[in-house]
């Protein structure tokens, strides 16, 4: 696998990664960034420091770059046409924006990007992108090299966003002993391993012809799990209770449909959610075969 060099978005330390969506150098930075994000109030464009921090979040600023940073800061503060306030979700979009990533010597394209930033502000950012130091840094190579439009997978980006948005859950499964201990942890693991198995099944059946009996069986399994003592006396802070209930309702609905066999296909957002949940749960429990599990302990 090829290593990608980039800077941590929180502390700015240079790092090597095999994953193009990796943003932080360590769990500590990821956690710190998560807490920062959750404690930051919605900012206004008049707040120079905040804007500057967002623009250059985690980037190493040497002398050359500092010139560019000042330019951006001045431009941001002098623009009177910009809206006074940005909605809270817009601030998130700014942080996740492609240009917070380390620069690439080629263009980056995401096929359909949901723009949540008001147009004047977004237009302003596009203008800055063309003038700031990051473009200049690779100016020479851009001219010399053949232009390549880097393709990003919308599905992978959505999964990465989901995992990042639900970092609290990821952290709970990564460090379960911080949140549960003793019999509580056992219950959490008991339910999680079964829910992971259900998720694996749903993803496995995606885009294939499925016998209705298979869903009847799945429905029975989930119901048995929800009726179990382990589920009923689950710790109050288990983050996936609603998800389990929601999936059970969906499976039950399909199991009660009249067709003997049908083509099963997950909606894109459901698929993203299930892949992200599988990723989160895999930190806590292993994948186990459906037949090997007793759902009604």
């Amino acid at each position: 696998m090829t290593d990608i060099k980039r800077n941590c978005l929180h502390c700015g330390t240079p790092m090597q990664t095999q994953r193009s969506t990796k943003k932080y150098c360590s769990d500590t930075c990821k956690q710190a960034a998560f807490y920062n994000r959750n404690t930051q109030p919605p900012f206004t464009l008049n707040d120079k420091e905040t804007i500057r921090a967002v623009e250059f979040e985690g980037e190493d600023l040497d002398e050359d770059h500092m010139d560019g940073a000042n330019t951006v800061q001045q431009e941001s503060s002098s623009d009177e046409q910009l809206p006074d306030k940005i909605p809270f979700n817009a601030s998130r979009s700014v942080r996740n924006y492609d240009d917070t990533e380390p620069p690439l010597p080629f263009n980056v394209r995401k096929s359909t990007y949901q723009q949540t930033i008001p147009e004047p502000y977004h237009a302003k950012r596009r203008e800055e992108d063309n003038t700031n130091v990051r473009s200049k840094r690779y100016h020479d190579t851009e001219v010399e090299e053949e232009t390549y439009e880097w393709v990003r997978s919308e599905l992978l980006d959505d999964i990465a966003d989901y995992v990042q948005d639900n970092y609290g859950t990821t952290e709970m499964f990564q460090y379960p002993k911080k949140y549960w201990y003793g019999s509580d942890l056992e219950k959490v693991k008991w339910v999680s391993v079964r829910f992971l198995c259900i998720i694996e099944n749903l993803l496995h059946f995606n885009n294939s012809n499925v016998d209705r009996r298979t869903f009847v069986l799945l429905n029975k399994a989930v119901k048995a799990m929800m009726d179990s003592w382990n589920y009923k006396y689950m710790p109050y802070n288990y983050p996936l209770k609603n998800e389990i209930r929601q999936q059970q309702q969906t499976i039950e609905k399909i199991a009660k449909s009249g067709d003997r066999s049908f083509r099963f296909a997950l909606k894109k957002e459901t698929k993203v959610k299930l892949i992200a949940l599988r990723f989160q749960l895999a930190d806590l429990v292993p994948r186990v075969k459906f037949k090997s599990l007793d759902f009604s302990k």
Binding site: N201, T214, P286, R287, K289, F290, K291
Partner: peptide
């Protein structure tokens, strides 16, 4: 992080 990779759900009656 897996115990069993072989899945054979279709056989379950």
């Amino acid at each position: 992080n897996v115990e069993t990779t072989d899945r054979d759900y279709e056989d379950d009656d």
